[in-house]
């Protein structure tokens, strides 16, 4: 891909958002396993965020 010119993104730029999403997923998956109550709430919010991003992106939002 070295021949490509113009405003190409680096690997970090491409993957920083996906990594953040994966991290949120990981926190959500583990949280509910560790405890109840607040821990469950953390897992609903972080995993629910995935669904919100899907709907937002489908409706036209993007990171730039």
């Amino acid at each position: 891909m070295t021949a490509r010119k113009g405003n190409s993104q680096t690997g970090w730029q491409i993957f920083r958002w996906p990594l953040l999403m994966a991290l949120a997923n990981a926190i959500g998956l583990v949280a509910a396993l560790v405890g109840d109550g607040w821990y469950d709430l953390v897992s609903w919010v972080t995993l629910g965020l995935t669904l919100i991003v899907i709907v937002a992106a489908w409706r036209g939002w993007s990171a730039r």
Partner: peptide, 19 residues
């Protein structure tokens, strides 16, 4: 799938859905 995501997204911001 993750590997081929990179070349596809070189010029596209995260979350792009072109309709």
């Amino acid at each position: 799938g993750v590997v081929v995501y990179a070349p596809f997204m070189r010029k596209l911001p995260f979350g792009t859905v072109r309709k």
